[in-house]
Design a binder for these strands. Structure first.
Ligand SMILES: [Zn+2]
Length: 230
DNA sequence: CGTGTTTGACCCGCGC
DNA sequence: GCGCGGGTCAAACACG
């Protein structure tokens, strides 16, 4: 009953034997922060991050996507250096192959949920077998508001929270709640500036923001996105 | 009852 | 090989 060895065939049905939690009903800190008034405006002022100084495929440039000039991101001070040092922003990048990534995604979607741990391990092994580390583009934003969950039009579900080293504030991990969309987002507060948070988006949504603004886009002649709300 | 949050365990890469 | 650090999972709760 121990998943000591990962079975190569699909006949694996090992479950996780972990359930030794004793009591998790401590006291929780109800940090109810939901005050998105003009955060979007502020959020648009801060900066955008294309984490690579070397010329790349510009058609992936998020700044142009959002209509923000690329030079408007200027958090290239110690913060960025620190992040580079920590490996959050990798300087080296291989070619991001989206089609291959999508293919893997489909494959993963097929055999999902049967054995999460096993599937995960299997996927990892598979992608390692391809020797191609699937890295989706990450967009970092530095916001200037004390609320992290500012509503950007998408619905996020928190799936984790970790305390990273050298930081005093925990980092939260969110994920898009759409079934086909697996965009992740991580939010971290700066230690020295608690009023500032760094939101790192990972991946791109495959759907339009499901916010309740169904007012004027009912024409929707263009099924593509083109809805630059973000 | 459905959905989102909390939270400890687990996993995995990497450095030593 | 082992420990550490970071990312993810999922059971258990909270809330409507
Ligand atoms: Zn999405």
């Amino acid at each position: 009953m121990l998943p000591s060895s990962i079975p190569g065939d699909d006949g694996d049905d090992d479950e996780d034997p972990d359930d030794t939690r004793e009591d998790l009903h401590h006291h929780h800190q109800g940090a109810s922060s939901n005050n998105s008034s003009n955060d979007l405006c502020e959020a648009l002022l801060f900066s955008c991050a294309n984490n690579n100084p070397k010329p790349r495929n510009l058609h992936h440039d998020p700044s142009s996507f959002m209509g923000i000039p690329s030079n408007s991101w200027e958090w290239g001070s110690s913060i960025r250096e620190s992040m580079v040092n920590k490996g959050l922003l990798e300087g080296d990048n291989e070619s991001v192959e989206e089609d291959h990534y999508d293919n893997i995604t489909n494959t993963n979607t097929l055999n999902k949920k049967i054995n999460p741990l096993g599937v995960s391990a299997f996927r990892m092994k598979k992608m390692k077998a391809g020797r191609r580390k699937v890295r989706e583009p990450r967009f970092c934003f530095k916001t200037l508001s004390d609320v992290d969950v500012l509503d950007d039009g998408y619905k996020w579900r928190k799936y984790g929270q970790k305390v990273v080293k050298n930081t005093q504030h925990p980092r939260s991990y969110y994920r898009c709640t759409q079934d086909n969309c697996r965009v992740k987002k991580r939010v971290e507060r700066l230690a020295e500036d608690p009023r500032m948070v760094i939101t790192t988006y990972e991946g791109r949504h495959v759907h339009s923001p499901s916010h309740d603004n169904l007012d004027e886009d009912s024409n929707s002649s263009q099924p593509l996105l083109n809805k630059f709300f973000w």
